[in-house]
Design a binder for these strands. Sequence first.
DNA 1: CATGAATGAGTTTTCATTCAT
DNA 2: GATGAATGAAAACTCATTCAT
Lengths: 196, 196, 196, 196
Amino acid sequence: MGRKPIREQRRRQILEALYRCLLRKPYRETTMKDIGAEAGINHAMLHYYFRSKEDILLCFIENVYDRYRSLFAREVGGRPVKGASGRELLGKAFRFMNDRITTDKGLQTIFVEIWEIALYNPEVNARVKRIYTDWIRELGGIMQTAGAGPATSDRLAMSLVAFQEGIGLFSVFFDLNKGETMALMDYFQEKIVEML
Amino acid sequence: MGRKPIREQRRRQILEALYRCLLRKPYRETTMKDIGAEAGINHAMLHYYFRSKEDILLCFIENVYDRYRSLFAREVGGRPVKGASGRELLGKAFRFMNDRITTDKGLQTIFVEIWEIALYNPEVNARVKRIYTDWIRELGGIMQTAGAGPATSDRLAMSLVAFQEGIGLFSVFFDLNKGETMALMDYFQEKIVEML
Amino acid sequence: MGRKPIREQRRRQILEALYRCLLRKPYRETTMKDIGAEAGINHAMLHYYFRSKEDILLCFIENVYDRYRSLFAREVGGRPVKGASGRELLGKAFRFMNDRITTDKGLQTIFVEIWEIALYNPEVNARVKRIYTDWIRELGGIMQTAGAGPATSDRLAMSLVAFQEGIGLFSVFFDLNKGETMALMDYFQEKIVEML
Amino acid sequence: MGRKPIREQRRRQILEALYRCLLRKPYRETTMKDIGAEAGINHAMLHYYFRSKEDILLCFIENVYDRYRSLFAREVGGRPVKGASGRELLGKAFRFMNDRITTDKGLQTIFVEIWEIALYNPEVNARVKRIYTDWIRELGGIMQTAGAGPATSDRLAMSLVAFQEGIGLFSVFFDLNKGETMALMDYFQEKIVEML
DNA sequence: CATGAATGAGTTTTCATTCAT
DNA sequence: GATGAATGAAAACTCATTCAT
């Protein structure tokens, strides 16, 4: 009885459609119809699977965040893996940031979009703030394992993430290629390692 | 001074109104009526003084840019002023960035807004790109006067501006106070000076 | 009793669900999903048991009418029961009206709803008209047994039912309690008895 | 400069259009487009002259009320006019009710509509309640001038208005002609006069 | 019988832009 | 120049009904 529950798949389809839409148009100019078309789904169905357009966005943000968290856990490992020194861990974290985040122009583009929305949308704001807070805390923790004092590591982590976001922004605007972007990041990151 | 033709005066009023509007709402939610009301001008007149809503935005960006260029010229001096050593000039430039730009939350908010629009709007994009290019070039030039080689100065300038934008973004999101923001900037800027 | 075919059971469930829904929302804001949820039945099934939303309403009205007819038959007796004088019968009828109808705020609320729908929906209109016609005729008949001439009894019955509906309406709007409502009814009804 | 301010005229046009619309369709099935078409005005303009569809309705109710209040003042006179005995005044009031309200089928139709909306819409409810309260108070006042004690007059006035509304409702449903409707009203009203 | 999925038409509302005076 | 009025296109969201399993 009843159809195969296809709910989760459809929701994913829609979230992925939003991702692709945001690569072409700002969120506010992306209509429900656009998202539906991109997902190959009647636009009325979007309201069946999500409460509202904003709900889609919120889930989308959550989704992106989760994806990267688990990617990070897989590639870097949240806690210092046995045998890996703090420095090695920090190196891995930097590589992750550079490789998976800062040089992913699509992702950066979407993040600029999300920052902007977060300026005046409290729900989005809360989520964005949490993402950055988590990220900074995570990085700070790793820096401590690599030998930094608590006060320094906090400030350094925040600076580093800010720097990363700035570079990400520029890589989009100046259409930097991966090499250029990484060079900018590397240089700074090396300095940081030296400071520890 | 000679009284300005009313046209210029009105245009300025409108651009200033947009500034205030953008402190409250995103551009795309700001209506022509909002801008008109804020400027104390009938909204139909906005089309008399500007071609379109986008035209207002474009002029607005130009305007902001000009304002800061001339402020910079006044406070720092575009060219190494006779008698000022390169290092001193760089210090002044840093102080300008920190004081007038990065710690001005309103300005930073508006910049986040503009970045986002620039992502998908070619006209805005061109203007924003030019602003950052100029700014990086300017800073690079000063760094050279302060002793950096041309290659290093370019990269450093870009990194510094990226960093600045990242910190500006965070100062908005985490609602950092002036002191906190400046501390983050200073720390990095000192390192840069050391590197020269 | 023999267990009722499930179909009838389900239909009843749905009609009762509509009753409860109408206590919370107007018919036109009540969705099929609402009714389904209230009945504990998948909303698509409503179309299996009824032709359409309107069909549910139509059956609902019939249902309410039948319920009150049989209640009336039980409590008052449709025909002058042997041994009961006309006046006694009329008294019972009045008591029924006051007790079971006019002071039942839920029922009155739903009736206001139904009047309104009947204004523009011919099917509903026909049913509502029949209900009032029957009711007036019934009451008129009783009045005749109580001694009124045919012409007087018709007019009196209609007036009385009109009055009853008016008071029912007010009891909802002014949130009159049972005592207040009955006092208003009683007073008028006594006058009527005197007129016979 | 500027156009002739046509605001009030347009608002009236729209309100009148709503009146005509409500004679054909329930409020909830009346679309803004319907009202616009009926008024001969682009439907987007309705939002220029009124905040929302509900705002139109609210103003409409207010408007109807005002119209009848001033009509009443003109035809009956709010206060016992010098030389007019209480009985005469009461007679005039009854004539007004019968002539202008209860036998106006369009008005009664619209009132049924409004009652229904008032059931679940607090704003409309408040206005409707106020209208009836005022009306009952007014009538009660006149009854006192005609000799009734305060307690009796209150109850009588409420009963009379309830009766009136009931008859109005029936005149719509049974499509009574003016004569029939008035006969029903008159009979009861005479009784009332006798009771004073 | 039952159910989640799908559709299509429709509703209110918004807004940049233009018009008429 | 200035202003209120007008337009038309579009957006988010809703829902009765039907479909597929």
